[in-house]
């Protein structure tokens, strides 16, 4: 059912004409709120031998477009588009300055709802784990052997993913939609991978441990639904890296993470939703 619908032709809301004419864009995803396009070309830096000190990205660029929503009152629509576009870009900029691995943002046009950023090329954590599980399962039939291989191949990456998320939360930033698809593994060098956190469309600033716990809980749910066999083990490693990451923040970090983990327990018990009265 779902697949049939995805194949249906959906008319795309139009990007500003100037951009479409000038650049070669490929639509790569259409969410509820934004269209995501790929462009090999940078919006304002041409390729030229004189330009050697420029932040060029060989993996190309992403244009994220929040089209106007005709169902919304025009004033409300303009406000929301501007507000959300800017909030996403501010998060990206702030995180980049702090050294958290996120796509570098290139430019923004808040009135048009356009963000340009670096394309992160690499498998999503989801696909990467699937790939590894497949390899491991083909190598041995023995569960103890497989467990050992998982620890060898997967644990290190999940520790570093947890650590990257801890940097985000340590800065009192909440992602809002942490899933194994929004964590991308970029090839660093010689087969070494580094996790990059993407899609800050729902991100926000929050000092509450509760909001960070919900971020982690949403990610846990994503693990359970996409990697049900070993979800618990994976989450364990990820949280180990997360807690260790906070440990680097000295006393405040240790205090913060203790509060968050306490909240996480509570959120797990009640689920994300409060119980409903009639």
């Amino acid at each position: 059912m779902a697949d049939d619908n995805k194949n249906a032709e959906i008319p795309l809301p139009a990007l500003p004409e100037g951009i479409v004419k000038a650049l070669d864009l490929t639509l790569i995803s259409q969410g509820a709120e934004a269209l995501v396009f790929f462009s090999q070309s940078h919006p304002f830096i041409p390729t030229h031998e004189a330009i050697t000190n420029s932040p060029g990205f060989s993996a190309g660029y992403i244009l994220k477009y929040r089209p106007p929503k005709p169902y919304r009152h025009a004033l409300l629509d303009a406000q929301l588009t501007k507000h959300r576009t800017l909030s996403e870009v501010r998060s990206l900029y702030k995180l980049m300055l702090a050294g958290v691995k996120v796509p570098v943002f290139v430019s923004v046009d808040p009135r048009q709802g356009i963000i340009w950023m670096e394309n992160i090329s690499g498998p999503s954590l989801k696909k990467w784990i699937w790939g590894n599980e497949e390899v491991i399962d083909s190598q041995t039939e023995d569960e103890a052997g497989r467990a050992k291989l998982r620890e060898e191949k997967i644990k290190g990456t999940l520790l570093s993913v947890g650590s990257e998320i801890s940097k985000l939360h340590f800065m009192d930033m909440v992602h809002g939609d942490l899933t194994t698809s929004n964590l991308v593994l970029r090839n660093k060098n010689e087969g070494e991978m580094e996790p990059v956190i993407i899609d800050f469309g729902l991100s926000s600033q929050s000092t509450l441990p509760e909001d960070k716990a919900v971020d982690l809980y949403v990610l846990e749910r994503a693990f359970v639904s996409t990697h049900p066999m070993h979800a618990e083990e994976y989450i364990g490693w990820l949280l180990e890296g997360y807690v260790a990451g906070f440990g680097r923040g000295k006393k405040t970090g240790v205090f913060k993470v203790r509060e968050i983990m306490k909240k996480l327990e509570a959120v797990r018990l009640r689920g994300r939703k409060r119980s409903m009265v009639g």
Partner: peptide
């Protein structure tokens, strides 16, 4: 604290500031 020796990293910081002028 932010080292600007790496021109490319530095350019990322300033181009970000230029794009965000008036918005932050």
């Amino acid at each position: 604290g932010v080292v600007l020796n790496d021109r490319i990293a530095a350019a990322q910081i300033v181009t970000g500031a230029i794009a965000l002028r008036g918005y932050s």
